[in-house]
Design a protein around this nucleic acid. Structure first.
Lengths: 251, 251
DNA sequence: TCGAATTTGTGCGTATGTATC
DNA sequence: GGATACATACGCACAAATTCG
């Protein structure tokens, strides 16, 4: 390596990137193995490895152990509909609606536990820190592939000792917040969503089949009944595969 | 290392991450040097390095050569309100409303030019590729600091040879799409927004005062009048400083 | 002002495990 | 089973930046 230059691994990565974006290495093709890169560019094993890592971090390629490193398809991001504009036709969890709209088969798993609200959750639910809440973690799958993580919190002061205390059990299990709250005479009338984005945490991205460093969209959603928060959730989706769509009336 | 476990570098990164998020390593503190990590966790130099790299990719820490690795401050993202729920009190551009709500002084610059619609813009505006459109680029500033980029397209078939052809000139200059369209008897009645995110391009991040590799939120917004698109725009904001907020009625 | 110590950033060579073909 | 290729890990070296006496 010399003075005013780029690091070797960035030079190699840049050359490979160029071949990928200009199409001379189309999707699904294998790029040169680490050993081949080492020969072709006259670099060490580590440099070839680092170069591949850069491309993997950018989401351009995907390493398959024992097989090779392959150029990834860059999917057109699919929409996740989050509209309050059109009335949703039937009862649904917030994300059943768009899955059916896309014609996909959505499944999910969940696990609930009672915990004490931390400062941030307490603020979002307008309760006191330390108050008990029902915390439920979801993994949503689309055609078997994890596509969304969600963590929801509901104040037990509201749902405790009612049939809907556990979101996914009982006759209304999996029916969505609005229907479940309706069953205990809580009328959910509006929802606030804050959409942010950040690099995904390592554990999120392993769960979502992504690569550490990839971008995720985070939706902080809170349902309200007469101004009172009744449920809040963090929804995490990979940004390279999904967009969040809103459809609003004007005025 | 053993069989059913996580890789060592993920275990170390996970432990450090926990200390960061639970506050025992607050912002601006230095985390243990590579040598210290190696000792404390009983791992090699490479593992300590990889662990730091994971945290850097997640944006939790920042390496300063020769000095140390420091926990980054995570500014509380400010909200950009994008609601159609509450009627907006006065005439405003889509982003004047939240700036005034935050009490901030918003200014902007713009530059318009006539261009031919590309394939994607044509599809968003439901016109033919090659049809002429008015393309306007904005830079929005908050207290002098660039905080948002926007590029909008309007079909000239609609606004051409009218007083509102140029969004920022004439008596209604800078008044927002809805008011300007109303002046030529086009009643904008709803808007679709698609929120996505990706690593910012180099030119975007220099304009926004960010660092290459930082995440940006991209909002694709289209205004409709009776089902016909009358304006579409790409809005880019840095994700570490802003969130996009929606407030929707339920049902 | 100088220099030594520390720390990150980058790079090299090698070894082992494991998945795929 | 064997060959190939990626994934993880170890140890080492050096340059550049920073800190501090």
């Amino acid at each position: 390596m010399a003075f005013g230059e780029q690091p070797a691994y960035l030079r190699v990565a840049g050359d490979l990137r160029k071949k990928i974006v200009d199409g001379s290495l189309p999707p699904h093709t294998r790029l040169p193995s680490q050993a081949r890169i080492r020969e072709e560019y006259g670099v060490s094993d580590t440099v070839a490895l680092e170069a591949r890592k850069v491309l993997m971090a950018e989401g351009l390629v995907e390493g398959r152990s024992g097989s090779g490193t392959y150029v990834r398809e860059r999917p057109v991001p699919r929409k996740i509909a989050r509209t309050g504009y059109r009335a949703v036709n039937g009862g649904s969890t917030p994300f059943r609606q768009e899955q059916s709209a896309e014609g996909a088969r959505g499944t999910w798993e969940s696990r609930s536990e009672q915990v004490e609200a931390g400062a941030k959750i307490a603020e979002r639910l307008a309760i006191r820190p330390g108050d008990r809440v029902m915390c439920t973690r979801y993994v949503f799958r689309d055609a078997g592939e994890a596509m969304m993580l969600s963590t929801s919190w509901e104040p037990l002061a509201l749902t405790g000792r009612t049939p809907v205390m556990l979101p996914e059990e009982g006759p209304l299990g999996g029916c969505g917040v609005v229907e479940r709250m309706a069953a205990i005479d809580v009328v959910v009338d509006n929802v606030a969503e804050e959409v942010g984005a950040r690099p995904g945490l390592a554990e999120e991205l392993t769960a979502l089949g992504g690569v550490p460093g990839h971008v995720v969209i985070v939706v902080q959603r809170t349902y309200y009944a007469s101004g009172r928060p009744v449920e809040t959730a963090d929804v995490v989706v990979p940004a390279d595969r999904y967009r969040v769509a809103y459809h609003l009336p004007v005025k």
